[in-house]
Design a protein around this nucleic acid. Structure first.
Length: 409
RNA sequence: GUGGCCGUAGCUCAGCCCGGUUAGAGCGCCAGGUUGUGGCCCUGGAGGUCGCGGGUUCAAGUCCCGUCGGUCACCCCA
């Protein structure tokens, strides 16, 4: 085969050997997401997968790795600079502003994101995120609710070793002074830091704290949470208090810095502690009170969450699940099976059979492999059918099969 | 952007280090046997440009160079 999926992408198809390609897991994760998002009052939101490049440059932020190195940017036939969305928040906020949104507003999204980077396990050029945004919401309980949604969902789908990490990044009131203090601290240790970190001091000193290489030299670095203004400290405290009241365990992590520039105050990450560190972040989010203004809108405080479905799939591994209820074995040809299947399908049963006219033996093998709990053997349209479930066998007219199954199973 | 490992059957891989008749295994697929018409087991069959291009050699899946692709890690992130 001369074509493969492009670098950093993959197919979700039946019969593939990798867990990441298992359609069953994807279907259940995406379905479960819709249930939980609606439970928390977040209606479906759909925005384009591509946007004006400038939206991301201004929204996500020029110092972020995502914008400087990882964007899929191209010029369309009209000469516009277009970028495949690297994350979901900027587009949703843009859509809210365009709709003239006023007052508290909620939206849930689910879809592919794109980042051009070297792929590896759990990191793809096209990857799937589900998330929510809560806009025009300033109070700390909004943060707590968003975090709770992520926590309940990840717990419900069964991510093993789930851990919530929490931090506050301050706001325009207290962060500038802290950054000066941090920069001074970092400049004093310039010789000890790695090359990348030195470059970051002037661009985004916060992210130096995240550098694993430099970590040993930064143990006494000043921390944002010790330098919050009163309003930010109160906000942070309130979020923590309500998480405790909700019985959601968290670990406060003063080094938690998110990769996107727009975060203010609350920042959090969900970690699957049983995954390798390289891909153990299954989700994250935070507050972004300045984002709307930075893309030219009115001030709109907001908080959001994004979960990486690819990584959740990896965390869960494969699961076996039957996808059909009945497999029909026909001794009188595929045409009869087609008609019998039609009857059962219209009754709501999930039914499959062999269209290729293979041997009865091969049909039985297919029945086994299909995972169907019931095998129906037929010898002709007007003859009674043989219904086998586990060890039991019964003979009945085709018309009675659906009722019988509903009654027994 | 940097580094390690790997490209042989539909899938997972052995064979390469120590070049040599028709390139193997398991699973899967097809047919048959056994069976309480299938699941276990047994027999047979189909299926391979050994990633691609050069080079060395009487001879290259095997050695050398290049190239493309995959994968994992660093970085960063979901």
């Amino acid at each position: 085969m001369s074509f493969r999926p492009p670098k950093g992408t993959y197919d979700v198809v039946a019969g593939a050997s990798q867990p990441i390609s298992d359609p069953q897991i994807w279907r259940s994760l995406l379905g479960e997401w819709e249930v939980w998002a609606e439970r928390f009052g977040y209606p479906l939101t759909m925005t384009p997968v591509f946007e004006s490049t400038e939206l991301f440059e201004r929204g996500v932020g020029g110092s972020s790795e995502v914008v400087t190195k990882q964007m899929y940017t191209f010029e369309d036939k009209g000469g516009r600079s277009i970028t495949l969305r690297p994350e979901g928040t900027a587009g949703v906020v843009r859509a809210f502003l365009n709709a003239g949104g006023q007052g508290a507003w909620k939206g849930a999204y689910s879809g592919p994101m794109f980042r051009y980077e070297r792929p590896q396990k759990g990191r793809y050029r096209q990857f799937w995120q589900v998330g929510v945004e809560y806009l025009d919401a300033e109070a700390p309980d909004a943060d707590s609710e968003v975090i709770e949604l992520g926590y309940r969902y990840l717990t419900a789908v069964g991510v093993p070793g789930l851990e919530l990490r929490l931090n506050s990044l301050g706001d325009s009131e207290c962060r500038p002074a802290y950054l000066v203090q941090l920069s001074t601290y970092l400049n004093d240790r310039r010789e000890k830091l790695c090359e990348d970190s030195v470059d970051l001091i002037d661009v985004n000193p916060l992210r130096v704290l995240d550098c694993k290489v430099c970590e040993p030299y930064l143990t006494d670095a000043p921390e944002m949470t010790d330098n919050l203004c009163d309003a930010c400290r109160d906000h942070f405290q309130s979020v923590k208090t309500s998480l405790e009241a909700l019985n959601i365990p968290y670990v406060q992590d003063p080094r938690l810095v998110r990769g996107l520039d727009y975060y203010t105050r609350t920042a959090f990450e969900f970690i699957g502690t049983e995954l390798d560190a390289a891909q153990n972040a299954v989700g994250g989010g935070g507050r972004y009170d300045g984002l709307a203004e930075s893309i030219g809108g009115r001030r709109t405080p907001g908080v959001g969450l994004a979960l990486g479905v690819d990584r959740i799939v990896i965390a869960l591994g494969s699961a076996e699940a039957a996808s059909i209820d009945v497999y029909i074995v026909s001794e009188s040809g595929a045409g009869d099976a087609l008609l019998a299947a039609s009857v059962l399908r219209q009754d709501g049963l999930r039914v499959d059979f062999d269209t290729e006219g293979r041997s009865v033996k091969a049909q039985f093998r297919a029945a086994t492999r299909s995972g169907a709990g019931t095998t129906l053997v037929m010898g002709g349209l007007d003859k009674p059918v043989d219904v086998r479930t586990g060890g039991s066998r019964l003979t009945m007219p085709l018309e009675e099969v659906s009722d019988w199954m509903n009654a027994t199973l």
